[in-house]
Amino acid sequence: MVQDKSIGERLWAIAIWALVIFFIVNVIATIAAVAVDSFGTRWFNSWLPVAFTTHWYKSAWDEFQLRDVLIVTFEVVGAVVLLSGLLGVPAAYALARRNFPGKPLIIVLFLLPMMIPPITFGIPLATVLYQAHLGGNMSGVILANLVPTVPFVVLVMIPFIEQIDPRIEAAARVFGAGTGRLFMHVLVPLLTPGILAALLLVLVRTIAMFELTFFTAGPDSQTLVVTLYYAVGSAGVRSNQSIDAMAVIYMITTLVWLLLALKFVDPTQIVTRVKREAAH
């Protein structure tokens, strides 16, 4: 649309692109450093490790009991995905189709847990969960993780539901379908892409959700990211390469789901969801 003309503008454009490239190079190098270290035998005082090996993966697997940690992680994530779908989608349907008094207030109620950082509300939440004897075990971790994900599903699903023609539902109602059958036979099939996108994003966010899991997990209910945090914190005790091997396993479990999620959503949507709703 607008062509750059003056030398000053051209220099400015070059400077901006140089900045972008510098940033991306650093991001890639940071991630690559973890991956290279996890395959290296000894890495000190040189650009690359002396030799390469895969034995750190086996030692990390045993040392951090990754089998158990991965089972816990997927149990937590699975429960969070399922429950946030079951709670979030019907609520989104009600908010998309009905304009009842007090609806803006409900929207704000759903916005707050997404906008307030988990550190701020995590400690009071953990206190309440521990008092209810739900802290330090799986159910506490699942409940805590649901706090930001239920509102997330609601807010992601509202625009998806709004774009479905209400006459389709009216037709189903005319033929005698109740709300339950309407959901099973009309809405869920039509909403599958939206639900899938929302739940995949919930999945990715829950795997990476550190703070809430950290505050509520006991020794048997740590997810992968919390185990990684403890390992990095005790770097003197554990060998760095096996910590990095665990970090690579963590990256793979996160990025596989991210790639899948990106088939359904645009990357910008991952952050702009908050804004869309906030603007109303």
Partner: peptide, 16 residues
């Protein structure tokens, strides 16, 4: 590319 560091989270970025 930019969504990757957001997804990986602060713990992994710190380790890297």
């Amino acid at each position: 590319i930019l969504v990757v560091p957001i997804t990986l989270g602060t713990v992994l970025i710190a380790e890297g």
